[in-house]
């Protein structure tokens, strides 16, 4: 394992489980110092991670966290935390739509903004926002989630254009069906099996597989990829067997 991220400070939101946890672990394994967030004070993070509690649905909590981000001036920011709450279009409640967008879009925007002065000062920065295949792809009952994630990608593309000349690269990673707690709250076990079979690779992704792509984009190995939404989906978005 090369310590290619030695001397780099990384912030990963939602680092207590799933994809965010795998990202935090891999950034650490490459030598980065990692600050992970979770909603609970003293949340369980990978060993060696520093913890910050932040509630992305609470603007005051996000504002306080942004102050911390400005002060810490991370080289790497991974906006990973998010929520999914499938509801068919006619049952969307305005407040729930707003809450999901607050967490998946408004808070990541604010955190990106807080990280930029430090990255510009370093003359080097990598931002990876975790988007979703629900954007490039559609499915019933995903309009709330899909609109928040598609907006995150739109925002990231514009941000990439604004900061590329400062050595700050901004990309999204769109995970396919990944074996996380989140997906298990959405699909019962028998549905999950069917879901896995619908993927050209015939299996779900493991969080570590998504994290590998995220960490590549966040590392110095990536020098010229910016403004992209990279799909790590086992072929789901582009391949069909009919």
């Amino acid at each position: 394992m090369t310590k290619s991220l030695s001397g780099k400070l990384a912030i990963v939101t939602g680092a207590s489980r799933g994809i965010g946890r795998a990202i935090a672990e891999q950034l650490q394994a490459r030598g980065a110092e990692v600050i992970g967030t979770s909603t609970k004070p003293g949340g369980e993070l990978p060993k060696g991670c520093r913890h910050e509690a932040v509630r992305l649905d609470d603007p005051a909590s996000v504002a306080a966290f942004c102050k911390t981000v400005e002060k810490l001036a991370p080289h790497i920011l991974i906006n990973n935390a998010g929520v999914a709450n499938p509801q068919t279009f006619e049952t969307i409640a305005d407040d729930e739509f707003r809450r999901v967008h607050e967490i998946n879009l408004v808070a990541p925007m604010a955190i990106c903004r807080a990280a930029l002065p430090g990255m510009k000062r370093h003359g080097w920065g990598r931002i990876v926002n975790i988007s979703s295949i629900w954007g490039p792809l559609s499915r019933v009952a995903r309009s709330t989630y899909a609109s928040s994630k598609a907006a995150l990608d739109g925002m990231s593309g514009c941000l990439a254009a604004e900061v590329a000349s400062h050595g700050v690269l901004v990309n999204c990673v769109a995970p396919g069906f990944t074996e996380t707690e989140m997906i298990k709250t959405i699909f019962p076990p028998d549905k999950l099996d069917a879901l896995a079979k619908s993927v050209p690779m015939k299996r779900l992704a493991q969080p570590a597989e998504i994290a590998k792509a995220v960490v590549w984009l966040a590392s110095a190995e990536n020098g010229y990829v910016t403004g992209q939404n990279i799909l790590v989906d086992g072929g789901l978005s582009r391949l069909k067997e009919v």
Binding site: G227, D233, L239
Partner: peptide, 20 residues
């Protein structure tokens, strides 16, 4: 070996040119 789940994609490496 780090790529185990990306397939069927075309990745742009263009410094943001195409999208902007």
């Amino acid at each position: 070996p780090d790529n185990t789940y990306m397939t069927g994609q075309q990745i742009l490496i263009d410094g943001g040119f195409t999208r902007t």
